[in-house]
Nucleic acid binder design. Structure first.
Lengths: 221, 221
DNA sequence: CGGGTGCTTGATACCGATCAACCCACGTGG
DNA sequence: CCACGTGGGTTGATCGGTATCAAGCACCCG
């Protein structure tokens, strides 16, 4: 592994908080992999062999129902991990993972990580922190699914990405609106319409750049 | 703690898989508590001091948004734990917990469990398994929220509670329809209507007793 | 009996999915 | 240079599902 990649790995959520010994021990098992747009990294229901740490790009985690329709469970950003909950049990992947653009990941063998976590309290602690964070995120997600409208979800997203004390802000969306819609549990059309109605609240969208004229006004939506 | 309660505790998800030493060590810190219908066990946003293991009755875990509307995140059954993800970090409860009827819980001091989990690999492993299970449940929940209709959720629930190979079945709902609706992310009205339309598929509902005439037919919905 | 509580049913409104058309930016190849 | 295709995004029209509000019903318990 090159120095660049190790430093990316070291800054990931999985590794943050590990002492040097544990980090090096774990990193030794990592194998770099690259994927192109739409490539499938793991497939829901398949035999679980690995857990992953995303170093570059974005990954969508999806679940499908019986008739093939699929939705995004979570959007992974650089530094995120996925499939990590398998270290606590389970033999198949619970969701699929698709690369959304060019992606670099570190792959870890599941059995090896399990063994390592069993020996190294630091590593199992890091895994637990990851899972706890994901739990909180998912609960937030369910809550917003069930009691916020599309408009509210979008405004909440925008507000959570700017300093609330300022008067106005400019946000660079980290990925395509497509992905953002999935993250918020919306269709692309619904997201587009939400942005459209926010125009009257002083929100201007050009591509991935969002300018918010009056943050206080947005909070009142 | 009385023998009855210790045996309930021993069969809980938190304790299953613990060896006797770990189990006794943990049980020593447990304190029994009772709650009546609608009593609040923990309050969202409050300082987190404890984690809980439900021994008798049912508990709804709820989140509320800014304007006070609330929804159920999860329904705890006897043997379930809640607030356990705090051992991995976080200082406030992420959700409220309300007793749905008469309830007996075992309360554990958060700091003590943290210390115990740090020392005892068995206990931290059990906590990890709990959290992993909750993660999977929540992901299922999001998936069904986003891509199943009310009718499909109800039929899925029924099918997941009977032997699929049999021809017909009788199910005792473990709690009121009220709770079931919350668990499935529905209003009570929506649940009621779903049952009504299932009548034409050979599903008869009387109180908490559900008789399914033709399981194979139900699977085709 | 009266008054809870839980459940059902009906009427209505609204939100968002869906389908279809269109626009735009971009790249490719003739 | 232009014709063309492609992928992402927007906009409009329509439809269906579910929340909401309101009323009525069954049951239990004081």
């Amino acid at each position: 592994m090159m120095p660049i990649e190790t430093s990316l790995l070291a800054r990931s959520k999985l590794f943050e908080g590990l002492d040097r010994v544990s980090a090096e021990r774990l990193a030794e098992y990592g194998e770099l992999m690259w994927f192109g747009p739409r490539e499938i990294i793991i497939r829901e229901g398949a035999e679980a062999t690995s857990i992953f740490c995303l170093l570059q790009g974005y990954v969508r985690l999806c679940k499908a129902n019986a008739d093939g329709r699929a939705i995004d469970i979570r959007i992974c950003e650089p530094g995120d991990s996925f499939a990590e909950c398998l270290v606590a049990g389970g033999s198949t992947y619970a969701y699929s993972a698709h690369a959304a653009g060019a992606v670099m990941v570190a792959r870890f063998d599941l059995a090896e990580v399990k063994a390592l976590a069993h020996m190294d309290r630091d590593i199992s602690g890091a895994l637990m922190r990851l899972m706890a964070g994901h739990l909180l995120d998912l609960m937030e997600c369910i809550a917003s699914d069930r009691l916020d409208t599309a408009l509210q979800r979008v405004t909440n997203y925008l507000l959570s990405h700017c300093m609330l004390e300022q008067q106005h802000a400019t946000i660079h969306l980290p990925f395509q609106k497509n992905l953002l819609a999935g993250k918020l549990g919306l269709t692309p059309e619904a997201l587009s319409r939400a942005f459209a109605t926010l125009k009257s609240a002083g929100v201007a969208v050009q591509g991935r750049i969002v300018r918010i004229g009056d943050i206080a006004a947005l909070r009142r939506v």
